[in-house]
């Protein structure tokens, strides 16, 4: 069983971010970068499937050279090898899906697992688009994944409003990982050292034959408006008047 997992480099969700003065993107100086937490869950799930079934876990990352740091982190968790799609420039979810489609066509994995979204731009679209482009069945927001004994199907449990939905999809398929799917393992120190030796293949977008032409572009980033301090009202009457005249909610 071959499983392909995506790994995106994102700013540490705990970091206090500042926007560049021109509003084009965040300031990256001094900011820590990590594996997108949902991708980490995806890697863990792939490793668990592999441990039950035997096979191979391949991680793929797209971006500038620095993204290989996060790819190494996934390899240190236990993934077998990496594919680094070297691409400098902006791209949107559809471009990502396009690039991944080409990777899938070359690698022919049985399962593709993505994080349900990346915590930086929170688009949450690449998984759906990829399944559509490939014409594969998909199961998004997985909280449990079981592979059938004949390795032909995956039973995927999804958390939906008011309960659970269980889907059965045929392989090959696309799955996206939700928060409660698993708790990712730590990369042990010896495995971090071993990860250095694992093969990473570098490819370009051109060599893959993928077209990148962003349909969505970031125009400007702005900070959320600063919250103004509240006021103390003297009486209930005062409150009602303010709600009526100032807030205009009643």
């Amino acid at each position: 069983m071959k499983i392909l997992v995506t790994v995106k480099r994102v700013s540490d969700p705990e970091a206090k971010l500042k926007i560049k003065p021109d509003g084009s993107w965040i300031q990256t100086e001094g900011v820590k970068f990590v594996v997108n937490p949902f991708d980490e869950i995806a890697v863990e799930e792939a490793l668990r499937i592999k441990e039950k079934q035997t096979g191979e876990v391949v991680v793929v990352s797209i971006g500038e050279k620095v993204v290989t740091e996060q790819m190494r982190a996934a390899l240190a968790m236990g993934a077998d090898r990496g594919i680094f799609v070297n691409y400098t420039g902006s791209y949107d979810s559809y471009d990502v899906a396009n690039i991944l489609q080409k990777v899938v066509e070359q690698e022919k994995p049985d399962i593709i697992i993505l994080g349900k979204q990346a915590v930086d731009d929170d688009m949450g679209a690449a998984g759906f688009m990829l399944a559509e482009l490939l014409g594969y069945p998909q199961a998004a927001f997985a909280s449990k994944v079981e592979i059938s004994d004949d390795k032909k199907k995956a039973k995927v449990t999804r958390e939906i409003d008011g309960g659970l939905e269980v889907k059965e999809v045929e392989l090959p398929c696309v799955i996206t990982a939700d928060l409660r799917l698993n708790t990712p393992r730590y990369a042990s120190l010896p495995n971090i050292m071993k990860a250095k030796q694992k093969p990473v293949k570098e490819v370009t977008v051109d060599a893959l034959g993928a077209a990148v032409k962003p349909r969505v572009t970031v125009k400007k980033l702005t900070e959320p408006p600063k919250r103004k301090g509240g006021v103390k009202v003297e009486s209930v009457q005062d409150l009602v008047t303010k709600l009526k005249n100032e807030a205009k909610v009643i």
Binding site: E69, R72, A73, A76, Y186, A187, S188, L189, I192, M193, K196
Partner: peptide, 14 residues
């Protein structure tokens, strides 16, 4: 190096 920082990350996470 990246490797040394990864060691620290594991310790930190743990």
């Amino acid at each position: 190096t990246e490797e040394q920082l990864s060691f620290a990350d594991t310790a930190d996470d743990f």
